[in-house]
Design a protein around this nucleic acid. Structure first.
Lengths: 151, 151
DNA sequence: TATTGTTATACTCTATAACTATA
DNA sequence: TATAGTTATAGAGTATAACAATA
């Protein structure tokens, strides 16, 4: 029972993502940011900041690692830490003025850079892609949760 | 002119890939391999070996990094280096007996582990996904090449 | 006791560039 | 001169676990 061509789908997923990553990373590095650092800036953009815990959940980065990334962004004066007024254990991370300015400058540029690549696709193409991808994600998410639950 | 919903597609791509990666990495780590190490084993599996150069092209890992990864796999006695008989500069990397045994043991298990996640998808779903993904990859690959060419 | 975040450790990967030995 | 691979360097991310402060 090995009719379903799953492997080609996985290969395509990996290749599509790597192509995106490499295209995106090239542009991100011109901003003197690493991809994880760019993720954090993008997550914090247009918000008033959020606890490190929440930032970790949104970016899928574990707390120990995140402390290091936030440290490096703090050194660059792009984010700051503020103690939470409600919870003494919690640190809220937010963009500084400089971080906001960077976000405002690079995020549209980053998007425009990526949009360039999409000019030839129709709205329908995009909608099909979105459907296929969300279906794919669901498959893994469900399976992952099941595995975790069965430990 | 910002009608096309590109951002959702990108988000879905990233999430789908991360879900896959995290699902896959969980299983890979039970084999005492890192994801890049698993990639190399999987690339070498069912071949008689290949030059480091070719291995780097297939796995998208640059030569300096690859030397380190192959070193670690050599220490684990999973791969070996053999000087090329044709080109004195070239080192051919191939699986050892132990590496072949590992590949034979883990690769089907890894696939089975992933296939579990796909039981509910039809062949048509898979075919649609594959099309959408290859289209997506092409978009980035083309754009990337254009950018490189324009440097 | 549980949770938030930091610190510490040790390792892997990464980019980059200089270097060697062959071609 | 160009290419294959190694070595060197420095940094960045990762997993993991112990820890402090607070809830």
């Amino acid at each position: 029972m090995k009719q379903k061509p799953i492997l080609p789908v996985l290969r395509e997923l990996a290749k599509a993502y790597q192509a995106f990553e490499s295209y995106s990373a090239m542009h991100v590095r011109t901003m003197e940011l690493t991809p994880p650092q760019f993720d954090i800036i993008a997550t914090l953009g247009n918000t008033s900041g959020m606890p490190l815990k929440e930032l970790g959940e949104k970016s899928l980065i574990t707390k120990g690692t995140l402390t290091g990334i936030v440290d490096r962004l703090t050194i660059k004066k792009l984010v700051r830490r503020v103690s939470s007024p409600i919870d003494g254990r919690s640190q809220i991370v937010q963009l500084t003025k400089k971080g906001e300015a960077l976000f405002a400058r690079i995020f549209p540029a980053h998007l425009a850079h990526i949009e360039e690549a999409f000019v030839e696709l129709s709205a329908e193409d995009l909608s099909n892609m979105q459907k296929a991808l969300s279906q794919l994600r669901e498959v893994f998410t469900k399976a992952h949760l099941q595995n975790k639950a069965s430990i």
